[in-house]
Amino acid sequence: MSVLLVVVGLVALVLSLALPVVVKPLLRRLGVIDIPNDRSSHSTVVIRGMGLAVAVAILAALILSLVTGLVAVDRSLILVIVVLVAAASTLGWVEDFRGLSVRVRLSAQLVIGAIGTAALATSIDDSSYWWVPVGAVAFATYINATNFMDGINGISGMHGLVVGLFYSWAGVLSDQVWLTVAGLVVAAAFTGFLPWNLGRGFVFLGDVGSYLLGASIAAIAVTGLLAGVYLEYLLSPVLIYLADTFTTFLRRARRGERLSTAHRQHVYQRLTDAGLNHVQVSIFVSILSALTAAAGFVLATAPAPLAVSVSLFAAVVVALYLYSPRIFRAVARRRATAEA
């Protein structure tokens, strides 16, 4: 298994690294570009839609895990994940290429999530169909969370890497090979995207890529939940993204703002306004996500006294992230005052 696992991971990594050579000229010819505005975190016209290459890498590697027999048990779970990822990526590509209304996008996300969760409930023994609406909402929620959070270079690639690795480790701890494979493939594929996103002549994932990221994580999480994986394993790696998304949503709703309009009020965006560059913010978000994930993995099997301490630690990490723009602005002001 270990050799095949490495091979499948390498396939995802190499394809994600190599395919942009072909995909980038195609996107340029199709005019799939991102034009900056006053709410953007970049200042030049950039090719977007490179998530198409990452999607092919993930799907090819997952299918390879079935063909080689790496995933011999619970094969149907990988097949459902493949269909969910392919469907969401296609929806994101249509949004990149033609544009869709908010209502159409959300409806399609919910339908894809509902059908996928129903298929999982059919595949997994003793699963209840009452999970279908929960899975549909979770699927749509995290697709939109990753779409909202995909605003600076490196943040999505690093998120895929961190969450994928922790999900893969959750598979090892849970003795579920499909989860080990799926997590590793996601981590490897998004790692392969990072040099293209951070190097010279960088490109963006686009909606196809952010939908791919959200769908991959949500599909694995919903599948894991129905398969009996600890909720702490599945939820803790995405706490920072969810905290940023929901606090920003509540803040804007409280102000009476139109929620469908573009903005720069996410915590990670305010961190760049506070003086951090894209890579610094992406690393900061990833480190805190890794800390909450580690806390969740301990919490899952911890005795009561330790569980309380670990829960408080995770809460402090989330609070630190939410208040970090104020902290970094205060540090910048003190530094400026000292230099003056």
Rank of each mutant, 00 (worst) to 15 (best):
Gly199Arg: 12
Pro195Val: 12
Trp178Arg: 03
Val181Pro: 11
Ala188Val: 00
Val185Arg: 03
Thr191Asp: 01
Gly183Cys: 01
Ala188Arg: 00
Gly192Asp: 00
Ala189Trp: 00
Trp196Ile: 06
Val208His: 05
Ala189Lys: 02
Val181Ile: 12
Leu205Thr: 13
Thr180Pro: 10
Gly199Glu: 01
Val186Pro: 01
Gly183His: 05
Leu179Asn: 03
Thr191Gly: 13
Val208Arg: 02
Val208Glu: 09
Ala188Phe: 15
Trp178Ser: 10
Phe202Thr: 05
Val181Phe: 11
Ala182Lys: 02
Val186Glu: 03
Val181Ala: 03
Val185Asp: 06
Leu184His: 04
Ala188His: 00
Asp207Ala: 08
Phe204Ser: 04
Gly199Thr: 07
Gly201Phe: 08
Phe204Arg: 01
Arg200Ser: 15
Val177Ile: 14
Phe193Gly: 04
Phe190Trp: 13
Val185Pro: 04
Ala188Tyr: 02
Leu205Ile: 03
Phe193Leu: 08
Val208Trp: 00
Leu194Asn: 01
Thr191Asn: 07
Asn197Thr: 12
Phe193Met: 07
Trp178Thr: 04
Leu205Met: 15
Arg200Gln: 13
Phe202Cys: 10
Leu205Arg: 08
Val186Leu: 14
Gly201Ser: 13
Leu179Gly: 12
Val181Cys: 11
Val177Ala: 13
Val177Trp: 03
Ala189Tyr: 02
Leu179Ser: 10
Thr180Ile: 05
Phe193Pro: 02
Leu194Lys: 02
Phe190Cys: 07
Val203Asp: 07
Ala182Thr: 14
Pro195Cys: 12
Leu198His: 04
Phe202Asn: 10
Gly192Pro: 01
Gly183Trp: 00
Gly199Cys: 06
Ala187Arg: 04
Phe204Glu: 08
Val177Asp: 11
Thr180Lys: 04
Phe190Val: 09
Ala182Asn: 00
Gln176Tyr: 08
Val208Cys: 12
Arg200Leu: 12
